[in-house]
Amino acid sequence: MDDLRKRLKAAIDASAHTMATLSREAGKNHAYIQQFIERGVPRKLPEDVRVLLSARLGMPETELGGRKPIIASYDPAEFDREVAPFEPGVSSLVPYEGRTANAMPDIDVSAGAGPGGLPLPHQLPHQSGVVYAADAIRGEVILPDYLLGEYTRAKAGRVHVVRVRGDSMETTLSSGDRVFVDTTDVAIGQGGVFVILDPDGEVLIKRLRKLPEGRIEIVSDNPKQASDNYAAEEIRIVGRAVARLCRI
């Protein structure tokens, strides 16, 4: 048993989870993780399983065989400078590592809850991933673990804070609200509110519903706004909106 598998087994033994429950939550058979640890099958964990285990066990994805995280650095004095193409940024697929421990990045890219949003500075060629330019990080948000844990099981580094723009999600969300987006949760399941990248490369926050024949309905909660639908491969899901910060 190599070091990776030893660390994974130790983390599971020290957690409230079992190999079987984690395997089922990953959509695999109950013996999947046990076979990986004890028999080395599969040789490498797929990305969706690494994301799940990282969120549930608090292990960095790099310790589970993932690539090294893209580290975001930001300097408020540099916010106005032009972003160079392909400049390293903040990925929704790896934990955020900023200046402050256990911080969530406040993304300076509005999520359109009306017609259109703002294009992301960078994108990953992955169905469920996007990359924000480092300059898009306007600051960091910190919540105590117990408070964040009331809304999501994800660690702070996998939660992004995104501002809402537009009125198509009224009364669920209002323009100017900030939503906390769990980037480890990209499964539509029974539906919910998600931040997505649409086929035109715009960031939207919409309610998603599965349709027959592999299509997804993009729903506006405001009845005055139209809904739409796309083939699943036409959109990218950034993550599920699990909480909001708003005025009262």
Rank of each mutant, 00 (worst) to 15 (best):
G176K: 11
V181Q: 03
A84H: 02
G66D: 02
D106Q: 11
E25L: 14
F79P: 01
R138H: 08
R81M: 14
I12H: 05
K9R: 13
V195S: 06
S54K: 03
D3Q: 13
D106W: 12
D200K: 15
A136V: 01
A20E: 15
R43P: 03
R39W: 03
R50V: 05
T183L: 09
G189D: 12
F86R: 13
V164N: 07
S174R: 15
R138E: 06
I137E: 00
P88W: 07
L53C: 08
E150Y: 03
G65C: 04
V186N: 12
E213A: 15
P46I: 03
A187W: 01
N229F: 14
V51P: 00
E217S: 13
G114T: 04
R7C: 01
F79E: 05
A10F: 01
A20G: 08
V193S: 04
T100C: 04
H30F: 06
I248F: 12
A103M: 08
R165C: 09
P88V: 09
I235V: 15
E87Q: 14
G189C: 06
K6W: 02
D106P: 00
R247D: 11
G129Q: 06
P46Y: 03
A187R: 14
S168P: 01
T62Y: 02
L57S: 05
T183F: 09
A136G: 13
L211M: 15
M19D: 04
I237P: 04
D198V: 09
I12M: 10
F79M: 06
D145K: 15
A226Y: 04
L57W: 05
A103K: 05
A72W: 02
D177H: 10
L208D: 05
E82C: 05
R7E: 04
L22G: 04
L245I: 11
V51A: 14
H126V: 11
V186F: 09
V130M: 07
E97M: 12
Q127S: 14
A31N: 14
K9N: 03
A16P: 00
L8V: 01
E63S: 11
V181T: 09
I237A: 06
F86W: 05
C246W: 11
I37Q: 06
V162Q: 05
R138K: 14
S15Q: 10
G27F: 08
G239V: 10
G89P: 03
Q127T: 07
D135P: 01
S23F: 07
A16V: 13
V164W: 00
F194G: 05
M169E: 10
M19G: 12
P46E: 15
L53W: 06
L124G: 00
P105Y: 13
T100F: 14
H122A: 15
S227D: 11
A187I: 11
R158A: 13
R207P: 02
A31L: 12
S73L: 13
R247W: 11
K210E: 14
R165E: 13
R236C: 03
P69R: 12
D221R: 10
G27K: 07
L52M: 09
Q190C: 00
E140T: 07
K44H: 14
V159N: 04
I218C: 08
Y151L: 07
T18H: 09
V179Y: 02
D198E: 04
T21W: 01
T18W: 09
G191M: 09
I107S: 04
A101W: 00
A84Y: 05
N229Y: 12
P144N: 10
